[in-house]
């Protein structure tokens, strides 16, 4: 069963919500770029379309698949951690996305259709995280916020 609730799916589908994919390079340094075509695939997997074969992100995703390293995708205030599980470079799935990309960007190419399995979803919405912090870590709150209001 997918980790992605209908609310998350709706956010992924919302074109006004920014999506960023973060991967790790050979040295473990993070590398984050906008994932313009991020979408929901079959079986609750995320689909990231990588247009360029030799891009840092494409190579990092391959490294993640080969060596079982996690990646992260932010969808607005949500962070989805997961792993690339499959790279389509040919066949009907690839063709479907190839035509989609080319319908959006003139003369675009598509290197790889990455299927990413979500493993963890973290809601980084400030109001939610603030409440969690104040409940779990009361000693990190600045006292001036807790004082009785003075006239």
């Amino acid at each position: 069963m997918s980790l992605l609730s209908q609310e998350i799916i709706d956010r992924v589908k919302d074109r006004s919500v920014s999506k960023v994919i973060a991967t790790l390079d050979e040295d473990g340094a993070p590398y984050a770029v906008v994932s313009r075509f991020l979408q929901i695939g079959e079986n609750g997997l995320l689909v990231h379309l990588e247009l360029l074969e030799k891009s840092e992100t494409n190579r990092n995703l391959l490294r993640s698949l080969w060596y079982e390293k996690k990646i992260a995708i932010s969808v607005g205030d949500l962070v989805i951690k997961g792993r690339p599980v499959k790279a389509h470079v040919s066949g009907p799935v690839f063709r479907q996305y190839y035509e989609q990309v080319r319908s959006v960007i003139a003369d675009a190419d598509l290197s790889t259709v990455w299927l990413i399995e979500p493993e963890e979803v973290i809601d980084e919405t400030y109001a939610i995280r603030k409440r969690q912090e104040e409940e779990q870590f009361p000693f990190s709150v600045h006292l001036d916020r807790l004082t009785v209001a003075t006239k």
Partner: peptide
């Protein structure tokens, strides 16, 4: 007649 060859999940 058999499959010509195989694709792995890394493409």
């Amino acid at each position: 007649l058999r499959p010509e060859s195989l694709l792995l999940r890394d493409g």
